[in-house]
Design a protein around this nucleic acid. Structure first.
Length: 868
RNA sequence: GCCGAAGUGGUGGAAUUGGUAGACACGCCAGACUUAGGAUCUGGUGCAGCGAUGCGUGGAGGUUCAAGUCCUCUCUUCGGCACCA
């Protein structure tokens, strides 16, 4: 029995079979329950990596399982094809982004097919095709019509040297990635989606997504960042004008001693004009405007500010408060103005100390802390407490005071309860070439005019080439840019030459899959009604916020436009972990590939083949080309084939955890597959093979056969539950391994028909249970075992409850909670019998050692604990 | 700083409602079969000890007949957000 399983012959044959027989084509069938499984579609970078393999393997197993369970499954695949890497590659390789992208798509498609994934390739889409982005432009126009999108001036990263806009990813340490010159901020008119209109709804529904990992909903909630507080008006001294602030702590209002405005706040200029501070303020505002705005840069700046020369009045106690402009006040949050309460906010406290501003304590802990009485506090007191120095509210609990004070202000028309969000509107304009053109026209007379629906799509010209610095050619392409105004017909109109953020395409692709060739609408409502929402979505946790939030937002947009009747796109979400591997670093060459290292004479250390230095084997981190710790799936495929690659990805770790790559582990999976292979061949080689046991349990008299049969049903139960409940394929696989081990442990050469029959049943079970995981291998064995193809259409095995129990059970005996002995006993024995046997045990007696027995605890059919 | 997750053998990882800690696999050790073994099969493998036994789930307490699991405190690592008023 030396025959080895050879994946290369088997796998391509079955892949052809599946494709030819269209086994994975999805058709609407209202008589059947549907199941929509989706994995995050890839960016066509050229090659799939282990992260893709893992992601798509997980999905494929579930699809094949659900199909065997009788569900009508849809499992589509496509390409997130717009974006910057295509532009970079085009410049580096002197090609066109489109050519590069389409080449990559075709080679990646081949790779995915090589892995045996069960996609319905007839539904394939690529977001860079006009048939796709046409509907994105259509939706944009609908949103424009309904005021869900607007234009405003906003900052972009600008490289003066290259005369081009840079995406955030193109800014490296404040410098242009291509030329190394400093990046500036430039104000441009840009389009925004009003995602903030749905902030509350997106937030509320975070708690109505039981199928999502809590980690992700928590991250989304934090991102949306709702805070409840009050809006309070402070009158400007000498004017009839007010400054509005947002605060979450209206209870500290009596302690507000100064005011801070964001440098961009519209009042900053008018307040300081004509005062002695005017110049200082202007200098400060200019300085802040020049500063880089990335979050990295923000950390570096100290809190600073400048007095505007103006004062405002605290509405509750009439205190004169100096108005500052300060860099920590953000125009984007709240109202862009902060009432500063240095006694109870650490940031305000630091600022007050720096500029010698007054600190007024208004809250004290219930057990008085002397520190808060003195004028020399060392830090702000931010805990709850009792109000002091707060007029009629003195003595009140601060939580209660929040509402009371706000209520009072509201009565006077000086304030109200309000909500503020951290989430900002989604800026979608990109001054890049390789993206969906924004379908509007700018007319000197009519202003912004939407492209008429009949003229869609606005096709991205694919005969244009990127400019040398990577800039978009669109603004200089007259035949694209110059057009006539659809409204007034004048010929001075210009197309918008910006394209949309590529996150827009990925926000609705899953709905397009329902009717991918529909050319009369964004989607066919009937198909969407049947297939949507996605039942199970699988992808990397790196998309926990943006992509998943945008997709949820887009479904709300479609819902608001009465195009769909649901709001949440993904019922269940699985965020799989990363694929990791250790890194190797040479002191001279930096990161090196494992093949450039060799073991030194002492067999313990690794040295660099090039220079002989000792190699440092570093931490296990995510596979990355630059860290040289990648495994190329192609190499695995040619060495082990698809099934074993898939098996390892599933066996090494549960899907939500990071997976550490281990070459020996793959080898182990290869051994397991061969072990099953040999076992199956042995059983089928029998001249008089057993028929899979389907008879009465009572007919299984032989102990070995009975136990093995029970084990098989326990395995079915375990595997089914592991897949159904948690996608824990690692434990499912180990359960099958146990069953295989049990079969090997039995008498394989026995002539006993009963045992042979049970063995045949076990073998069939093993192959069926493994079939979603190693589909080619399973098909091959299934056929060899005398079945008609395809195993894809076989029903998933069901376990027999009555077969799960065995006649004998194992009982453990503890003395004072410590394990001292075990024995087996008939399953129907009562507690008394257990007690008796436990006490009679020699080892148990030794530990009781004449001490009086205080108590005996019996856990039914499981355990006896004797307390002495 | 805030929010979240996780700490179990040499390694990846298992452990229903609290009830045999370490399933399964890798690695290692031994044996069998072999011209050979880096194939295969069998057995062993948490640590200490010849042994009986003792100790063991990041650490310290606690609840319980019984704790990886529950409670309190604490340490470490990873992830996310971060001048958010």
């Amino acid at each position: 029995m030396d025959e080895h399983y050879s994946p290369e012959e088997v796998e391509s044959r079955w892949q052809e079979y599946w494709e030819k027989n269209k086994l994975f084509r999805a058709d609407e069938d209202s008589s059947k329950e549907k199941y929509y499984l989706l994995e995050m579609f890839p960016y066509p970078s050229g090659k799939i990596h282990m992260g893709h393999v893992r992601n798509y393997t997980i999905g494929d197993v579930v699809v094949r399982y659900k199909k065997m369970k009788g569900l009508n499954v849809i499992h589509p695949m496509g390409w997130d094809a717009f974006g910057m890497p295509a532009e970079n590659a085009a410049i580096d390789n002197n090609t066109h982004p489109a050519a590069w992208t389409y080449d990559n798509i075709s080679s990646m498609r081949t790779q995915l097919k090589r892995l045996g994934f069960s996609y319905d390739w007839e539904r394939e889409i690529a977001t860079c095709r006009p048939e796709y982005y046409c509907w994105e432009q259509w939706l944009f126009l609908k949103m424009l019509e309904k005021d869900m999108v607007y234009r405003k001036e906003s900052y972009v990263n600008w490289c003066e040297h290259c005369k081009t806009v840079l995406a955030n990813e193109q800014v490296e340490a404040d410098m242009c990635w291509r030329c190394g010159e400093p990046v500036q901020q430039k104000k441009l008119w840009q389009w925004f989606f009003k995602i903030t209109d749905f902030a509350e709804d997106l937030l509320v529904y975070c708690d109505k997504l039981p199928g999502w990992p809590e980690k992700v909903t928590v991250m989304q909630k934090n991102w949306i960042g709702k805070s409840i507080g009050s809006e309070i008006k402070f009158r400007i001294e000498g004017q009839d004008n007010y400054i509005k602030v947002f605060t979450t702590r209206p209870d500290t209002l009596f302690g507000a001693t100064f005011m801070c405005l964001a440098p961009e706040h519209p009042l900053v200029d008018s307040l300081s004009r004509g005062t002695s501070q005017a110049e200082a303020v202007k200098a400060f505002v200019d300085k802040i405007a020049d500063q880089e705005r990335s979050t990295d840069a923000l950390e570096k700046y100290e809190k600073e500010g400048v007095f505007t020369g103006a004062w405002c009045i605290n509405p509750v106690n009439g205190r004169r408060m100096p108005i500052y402009t300060a860099n920590f006040a953000l125009m984007e949050y709240g109202t862009g103005a902060v009432m500063s309460v240095p006694a109870h906010d650490q940031r305000d406290f630091d600022f007050a100390q720096k500029y010698g501003l007054e600190i007024q304590i208004v809250i004290e802990p219930e057990t008085k802390n002397p520190d808060t009485h003195t004028g020399s506090m060392s830090q702000a007191y931010t805990e709850p407490g009792i109000l002091v120095n707060s007029g009629e509210y003195t003595g009140m609990d601060n939580i209660e005071a929040m509402d009371k004070i706000t209520q009072r202000l509201q009565e006077k028309g000086l304030g109200k309860k309000t909500v503020s969000f951290r989430l900002r509107d989604w800026g979608i304009s990109r001054q890049r070439y390789w993206g969906t053109p924004i379908p509007v026209i700018h007319c000197p007379d009519c202003g912004v005019v939407p492209v008429p629906e009949s003229e869609l799509p606005v096709v991205l010209p694919e005969d244009a080439n990127l400019l040398e610095n990577g800039a978009s050619p669109l603004p200089s392409l007259d035949y694209f840019k110059k057009t006539t105004c659809p409204k007034c017909g004048c010929s001075d109109a210009k197309r918008d030459t910006d394209t949309m953020d590529t996150f827009v395409e990925s926000s609705w692709y899953f709905i397009r899959y329902c009717s991918p060739r529909c050319d009369t609408a964004m989607f066919d409502p009937k198909a969407v009604k049947y297939w949507m929402p996605v039942d199970q979505y699988i992808g990397g946790v790196e998309h926990a916020i943006l992509h998943l939030l945008y997709s949820r937002y887009f479904m709300r947009v479609l819902n608001h436009l009465n195009l769909i009747d649901f709001k949440e796109p993904f019922t269940r979400l699985l965020t799989q972990g990363m694929v990791c591997k250790e890194t190797m670093t040479c002191p001279k060459h930096g990161y090196i590939f494992p093949e450039d290292a060799q073991t030194a004479g002492d067999n313990n250390t690794l040295t660099c083949k090039k220079c002989g230095s000792t190699i440092d084997v570093g931490r296990v981190i995510k596979m990355s080309k630059s860290k040289k710790n990648v495994i190329d799936p192609n190499i695995l495929l040619s060495k082990y084939g698809a099934d074993i690659t898939r098996l390892f990805c599933l066996f090494a770790a549960p899907p939500e955890k990071d997976l550490e790559w281990n070459d020996d582990g793959v080898e182990g999976c290869y051994r397991f597959i061969n072990r099953v292979w040999r076992l199956a061949l042995k059983l089928t080689a029998d001249e008089n093979p057993g028929k899979p046991f389907r008879g009465e349990l009572s007919k299984l008299k032989d102990d070995g056969a009975g136990k093995l049969y029970a084990k098989a049903h326990q395995t079915i139960k375990k595997v089914t539950e592991d897949i159904e409940n948690s996608f824990h394929f690692n434990t499912a696989i180990s359960a099958v391994m146990e069953l295989v081990n049990a079969m090997y442990a039995g008498d394989l050469d026995s002539d006993d028909t009963e045992l042979k029959s049970v063995a045949a049943f076990c073998m069939e079970t093993v192959v069926l249970l493994l079939s979603p995981i190693v589909p080619h291998f399973a098909e091959e064995l299934w056929e060899k075992m005398g079945h008609e193809p395809s195993i894809v259409d076989e029903p998933w095995p069901e376990y027999r409850k009555d077969a799960l129990v065995t006649d004998e059970i194992l009982v453990v005996v503890q003395v004072n909670g410590k394990l001292r002995s075990k024995f087996t006993i008939a399953a129907d024995s009562d507690d008394e019998a257990l007690k008796e046997l436990a006490l009679a045990d020699e080892a148990v007696q030794r530990h009781i050692n004449d001490k009086p027995v205080k108590k005996i605890i019996v856990v039914k059919k499981k355990l006896v604990n004797i307390v002495v």
